[in-house]
Design a binder for these strands. Structure first.
Lengths: 354, 354
DNA sequence: GTTAGCAGTCGTAAGATTAGAGTGCTAACA
DNA sequence: TGTTAGCACTCTAATCTTACGACTGCTAAC
């Protein structure tokens, strides 16, 4: 059977209507609602076809139809094709004013949650691909060293380590210089045994200390990788939607948002499953698709963002399967465009590549 | 009417039973359950009295009784009097191993939530009463300064500020030394105009930069005061309890746990309403008492903790009014004792003061 | 002071009933 | 051949009814 123009209109009308009301949609509603002037009987025939083709489902004999996952998928795909050029000016100001990446991420995710009324999350860029700007050492107490790591994008990590010797201030300062000389500009993968040895060679009598520092650096970056920083916002928005209202379903989600580990896993699955050439393009996971298998009633919209020089992460919105895809997609698209405009290729075409 | 021994036993039995089951308790249940061998009829008479005295309530004519807030209050007070000397060894190891205060707080709150199965929260010590150990400046980019503030307890704050001039590395280093000389050891209230002027006097041609730094220091401490760092854990535990299960009630709570501002307010009310001499003692707020007026179905158990030198904050557990007070109170008490043992008066009576 | 027994109350769980929304099918029509 | 009106049928959800059971309060006896 063919999915002709009329069927498409009917299908879309059903889905739109269902997204709004959350109730099964009957033939009479479509007959009045849609621009095609057809009687409910005709619509019924078409709906019968659509059901047979798997786009819609009847929850029970005498109910209207609701979209199946296949139906949602069709709907979402067709929205994604239509390029909508609505632009809004939000976020722009905000983005420019922020010094620290952390703040930027927090405010981005916050806005996203507010705009969409769903739960939003954003993952901080993977540290391992992130260059070290410089690091600083200081001595907050006996045999303690405070290590501060400043990465590209002004991402700041700090950690206190305990060392065997108790270097004085001057030594600390010297070591800082030695280490910085070799390490700044590198990213995790660049810190090879060779590099480590070079630094150690220059560290005079403080090999063990330097070794401890270097270990800490690597560990911090790696740890930041696994337990990637994830910021969330609007988790309670989820409770607004009746289909997620029953505690069991909501708990899964809310606790994911509380504990973050689950989100980390989710995010890493997303970024793995999307090729690097799909960067900045949107992904929609419906029902149990992909990384959200255990959230059968939810959908997830994600995008890979990129802030200038290799700072990449994932941003996303989670809501009920009956989500306002149109709005979410356009909001996200918008956001991505703004980020591109603000951070893309060093603002003004330094290196024409597209 | 007198609250005699027998009435007390009956009251406690009712409450205990209700805490377990969450259902109104009938006379027959008590008659069988309690150690006093009385018929249900006698119990009925006593219950009638207890109701008249306001300790218990009948949700409707033909139901058993449930504790009133007054009843809960009586119960909690009487538990608090009984000194129970159960000690468990948890946390001890954990506490000693932690370098950074932040980590300590996080793990404390996490344990508390796990132990009690309710939602737990802890506020970081108020920064304004916290001495500055030292600060560090560095230059992550043009006209930017990264300011790192290390406070007593190895609490670390960082912020990037934008300055008018663009000092070179050496200048930054010198300024750091000048500022540290004067500021380390002080707390917020010690940073008077006099101090500021002294530092400015020594800052050579970099007055504006130094001023910016000092402002940032004060702002960071003050900001840390208002939006005091609060760590939470186990928010979703709340959803386990049927009386908080309906979305409206839960949303209030969960969103409080998500957004933190509300918790901040709550915490500050707690610490205001408790005198400093009640430090380390437990507080129980039932129903709408005190700071939790808008959570009529919840109770809040708090304690003011102190980690050594003036590092004070609030730790607490939120659960349903029908909370296992006995367990929560003893868990909290325990925790406080452990903290005291570990941090109290510099571990081993360095400065006999009590 | 305590207890047994009984009448009375009230909420809830379990049917029974009904209204309404929606379908599928058939037959008529353009 | 596609469209439509009409009707019988189905199924849910809401409402009502009923019955049950868990309690209480009271009274009278011990």
């Amino acid at each position: 059977m063919e999915l002709d123009a009329r069927k498409i209109i009917i299908l879309k009308t059903i889905i739109k209507n269902y997204l709004e009301t959350g109730e099964p949609v009957g033939s009479r509603t479509i007959s009045k609602y849609s621009e095609l002037n057809l009687s409910s009987a005709t619509i019924r025939n078409e709906m019968s076809d659509l059901e047979e083709m798997g786009y819609i489902i009847q929850p029970h004999t005498s109910a209207g139809r609701i979209p199946s996952d296949k139906g949602y998928r069709f709907y979402v795909d067709s929205i994604m094709k239509e390029s909508d050029d609505r632009v809004n000016e939000v976020t722009e100001l905000m983005v420019k004013k922020v010094d620290k990446l952390e703040m930027l991420l927090k405010s981005l995710v916050r806005h996203l949650a507010l705009d969409t009324n769903y739960a939003a999350l954003i993952s901080a860029p993977a540290l391992s691909k992130n260059k070290i700007k410089y690091l600083q050492l200081s001595r907050p107490g006996e045999r303690k060293l405070l290590l501060i790591l400043v990465l590209e994008g002004n991402m700041i990590k700090n950690e206190i380590i305990t060392v065997d010797e108790d270097p004085d201030m001057e030594t600390v300062l010297n070591l800082t210089i030695v280490i910085n000389n070799r390490l700044s500009g590198l990213c995790l993968n660049d810190i090879t045994p060779t590099v480590v040895n070079e630094v150690l060679a220059q560290s005079g009598g403080h090999k063990s200390t330097v070794r401890a520092v270097l270990n800490a650096v690597v560990e911090m970056i790696e740890a930041g990788e696994d337990a990637a920083d994830i910021y969330t916002s609007g988790a309670t928005n989820i409770l607004k939607y009746p289909e997620l209202t029953d505690i069991e379903k909501a708990t899964e989600l809310i606790s994911a948002f509380e504990e973050k580990d689950k989100l980390t896993k989710l995010v890493s699955e997303v970024s793995e499953s999307t090729d690097s050439d799909t960067k900045n393009s949107l992904q929609v996971y419906i029902g149990g698709e992909g990384p959200i298998q255990n959230m059968r009633d939810c959908s997830l919209v994600t995008a890979n963002y990129e802030l200038g020089d290799g700072l990449r992460g994932v941003i996303g919105v989670i809501g009920p399967k009956r989500m306002d895809y149109e709005k979410v997609l356009s909001t996200m698209k918008n956001l991505m465009e703004q980020l591109d405009k603000t951070f893309g290729k060093d603002s003004d075409t330094k290196k024409g590549k597209g």
